[in-house]
């Protein structure tokens, strides 16, 4: 089984984690100003890259904290994990 390194708890089995979709999707600064189309884009539209992808993960069965990870969608390899509020690390 793949191990995912929680930024606090260290490497744990994948079954302890919960997937949270694309990271760094900011809530609109002025929600009332958005058109229907812009709302739809915010709620439903996500990137789907082939390669490194910044995602949200939660250590659901452990410390129950959310964090971000860069995962290569081709190999499932986790290239980096980082805490909320931290910059996305440069990965190759």
């Amino acid at each position: 089984m793949q191990l995912i390194p929680c930024p606090w708890c260290g490497p744990r089995e994948e079954v302890e984690f919960h997937y949270g979709g694309q990271a760094h999707v900011d809530y609109p600064a002025e929600p009332a100003a958005l058109s229907d189309e812009e709302w739809a884009k915010f709620v439903f539209f996500r990137d789907n890259p082939r390669g490194p992808f910044a995602e949200r993960w939660s250590h659901a069965a452990g410390c129950r904290r959310w964090f971000n990870a860069v995962r290569d969608t081709r190999s499932y390899e986790l290239l980096a994990v980082y805490r909320p509020g931290q910059e996305r690390p440069v990965t190759t």
Binding site: C9, E16, A61, G62, C63
Partner: peptide, 10 residues
């Protein structure tokens, strides 16, 4: 002190 799964139980 770890929070984890034992026999699928938290």
């Amino acid at each position: 002190c770890v929070q984890t799964l034992l026999a699928q139980t938290g």
